[in-house]
Design a protein around this nucleic acid. Structure first.
Lengths: 127, 127
DNA sequence: GGTGTGCTCAACCGTTCGGTTGAACAAGGA
DNA sequence: TCCTTGTTCAACCGAACGGTTGAGCACACC
């Protein structure tokens, strides 16, 4: 079962080796052995990492004789950015609202006790 | 061993339940039982999720009698955004360069064969 | 055709992960 | 004081993860 796209992308990037691979692919396409060279793991391990990255849509592979050049696909990044921005923005709006609230009632408000007016219950779930 | 910050954040958000928790915390702070209510898992499981989110710095917890209100910390998002933007931008630059290259030499260039000029070897690793 | 190279498939291994249940702790309310 | 509520701790379980080694496949080169 392929899990949702966002989960795949985040979990693909949760591994430092995979992030480093992405970083290197951002400067140039590379083959599996080229990618494996700087690490102290087997080529097979890197091949597995690439399969994960490909599954997440972060990377694509073409054919060049025996070689399988790996190419970074930048579009998927937008998926993450969209998710992140959505909730960051919301959180920030909430702070502004809290600031306004605190400004409006200048005494006796314990910040930890705010009952949270729940202003925007729409579009709550992501799925 | 606490793993690097970026790995923790990405891996924390790789779980759909945890992402949903973040989404809900973006609209208002909540206690553990409140957060657990909509899901079909035990409160303990949610408590574990929160520990992961806290470890990643995505969330903070205060005290209110027996309750432990959970609060979304928006700053960590910047860490991810910075990483993502860095490599997305690089990849896009590379496409522009490739476009320019292809425009400059209108014949006989096999895109898959580019030997990768390694334009910016500095700041290659992230750690 | 045979050999070497690049890569993947398959099986296995130890660790981590998400979940469970059961017990414990902490604090307010009767 | 006892009880209930909110939360965490501890032990356990099955599945997934990151890694290994060994075999196999696909293709270029001699």
């Amino acid at each position: 079962m392929p899990a949702d796209a966002l989960s795949q992308v985040f979990s693909a990037l949760a591994d430092p080796t995979r992030r480093d691979i992405v970083a290197r692919l951002a400067v140039a396409d590379a083959t599996v052995t080229e990618l494996a060279e700087p690490y102290s793991v087997s080529v097979q391990a890197v091949s597995k990492h690439l399969r994960v990255l490909e599954g997440a849509g972060l990377v694509s592979r073409s054919r060049d004789a025996q070689r399988r050049p790996v190419h970074l696909e930048a579009e998927v990044f937008d998926l993450m950015t969209a998710w992140i921005e959505r909730y960051r923005r919301r959180a920030e709006e909430r702070y502004s609202r809290l600031d306004a609230l605190l400004a409006a009632m200048p005494d006796a408000v314990d910040a930890d006790d705010a009952p949270a007016p729940a202003t925007d219950p729409t579009t709550q779930g992501e799925a």
